[in-house]
């Protein structure tokens, strides 16, 4: 999967001195040391994560009793997958959600650029504010957002009304409900993105800006021609993490939309579908299939991003 791309010791935005190739080759093939370093970690990973995944792969070929007791059914569950129109629908919903959350990336790039202006007062305070949503407990904050999005009485529609816009019933209209959840996801992710991007920004040598300024570049030109290109490694990392996390959409959907809201049928995410099949429908076998589909889809999305990074990510 990501093997070939990941092993490239790509450069960094922190001006680390590149190691001399000759030395690197001379470096020991490390003997038994690696075992000491990764051994304990890998044992735990194998026991608590890898084994369950392999079990899941096996369960995808079985039919489960609700409390255990499996019957081998071959590819039956996998055949169901191809006739199930819920899966493409859930995939689409998840992708829409991810696209909304990814809107947070350019916003975060812009805000980080502002935050990292030299001699900006109060930047630590701003950073703390932007980090706060990341601390929010989904269940508690979901109530507040539900009140804000309320179609009749919410502050968001009250705000829109100031401009003569009649806002929709956000949480009960199929298209809008997903947008609402996406907005909350975006709200929660911006702070995290800003911290990573700010850190990346700090790695850009100030001389580059000075040189650009000497050439008469405006702030806008500097942003597009210095900041953005040099920030691409950080942007790339943020994108990868956001996409992986976005595919796990479940808690937020559950907390904001909930199970008894009729619109849930149109807003199910892939993980919601997995949860529904495994724990509500009690069809663990098919739930396992969906879990593996999620793994495959995220792996492909991540691999594509690693492949495309060569085209647009500038490593120093």
């Amino acid at each position: 999967m990501t093997v070939t791309t990941l092993k490239r010791p790509a450069g960094t935005s922190v001006p680390a001195a590149p190691a001399a190739p000759a030395r690197r080759r001379r470096r020991l093939s490390s003997g038994w040391w690696p075992l000491l370093f990764v051994g304990p970690f890998l044992v735990g990973i194998a026991v608590f994560y890898l084994f369950p995944i392999l079990q899941t792969a096996y369960y995808s070929l079985t039919s489960w009793g609700p409390f255990g007791g499996v019957t081998f059914v071959g590819l039956e569950n996998w055949a169901t997958l191809f006739t199930d129109d819920e899966v493409p629908k859930a995939l689409l919903n998840t992708v829409v959600y991810i696209l909304i959350v990814l809107l947070g990336v350019p916003i975060a790039v812009w805000l980080s650029a502002l935050l990292n202006r030299p001699r900006l007062r109060g930047s630590m305070t701003y950073r703390t504010m932007f980090f706060l949503p990341y601390l929010a407990m989904p269940v508690a904050i979901a109530l507040v957002w539900r009140l804000m999005f309320n179609g009749d009485f919410g502050v968001i529609n009250a705000f829109l009304r100031l401009f003569g816009i009649q806002g929709p019933y956000w949480l009960s209209t199929p298209g809008y409900a997903l947008v609402a959840v996406g907005v909350v996801g975006l709200w929660m992710s911006v702070g995290f993105n800003i911290i990573i991007l700010s850190a990346g920004l700090r790695g850009i040598p100030p001389e580059l800006y000075e040189a650009a300024a000497l050439d008469g570049a405006s702030r806008r030109t500097q942003f597009w021609h210095v900041t953005v290109p040099l920030l691409t490694p950080s942007i790339f990392f943020v994108l990868v993490i956001n996409v992986i996390a976005g595919f796990q959409l479940f808690d937020l959907l559950y907390a904001i939309i909930g199970r008894s809201n009729p619109v849930i049928d149109d807003t199910k995410s892939l993980v919601y579908l997995f949860y529904d099949e495994s724990f509500i429908q009690n069809d663990r076998g098919y739930g396992a299939v969906i879990a593996l589909v999620i793994l495959a889809v995220v792996a492909i999305a991540t691999a594509i991003q690693f492949r495309l990074q060569r085209r647009w990510v500038n490593y120093v």
């Binding site: 999967m1 993980v271 724990f279 793994l295 792996a299 991540t302």
Partner: peptide
């Protein structure tokens, strides 16, 4: 890395 991509409920 792939472990990160599996829904935790699994």
């Amino acid at each position: 890395l792939a472990i990160l991509m599996v829904p935790p409920q699994v």
